[in-house]
């Protein structure tokens, strides 16, 4: 059973601000979804190897050659805020609360 306060904790971990209405709606909906998917853990027993990827692949290597296309102008054009040709971000340090 997923409670409202657990959903609030998960939303905080996921960095998503949710309104009270959203928290209420999501708690009951997620609960329905989770009970529907619970059967998976009952069927899949311990001795089965997990599959993380459909096609088994090993790491791909390539020669370490410079292949730089200057794109900084195009990238900054899509930024929410720019200062002196760089991304401007809000303050990253705050007083302890």
């Amino acid at each position: 059973m997923l409670t409202r306060s657990e959903v609030a904790r998960l939303a905080a971990l996921a960095r998503i601000e949710l309104s009270d209405d959203e928290l209420d709606a999501m708690a009951s909906q997620l609960d329905v979804i989770l009970s529907a998917v619970a059967a998976v853990s009952e069927v899949a027993s311990q001795d089965i190897p997990p599959t993380s990827h459909a096609v088994p692949l090993t790491n791909v290597m390539r020669p370490d050659v410079l292949n730089w296309v200057p794109r900084s102008q195009a990238m900054l054009a899509g930024a929410p805020d720019v200062e002196n040709g760089r991304f401007r971000v809000p303050q990253i340090l705050q007083e302890e609360q």
């Binding site: 998503i16 997620l30 069927v43 899949a44 089965i48 599959t51």
Partner: peptide, 25 residues
């Protein structure tokens, strides 16, 4: 939020781990 839950400590094996095994099946 569902994914954050499925990957969170204490639930990983029951949810994500089992799902990966089911993927094999």
């Amino acid at each position: 939020i569902l994914g954050t839950y499925a990957l969170s400590a204490g639930y990983y094996d029951a949810y994500y781990g089992s799902a990966q095994k089911m993927r094999t099946l």
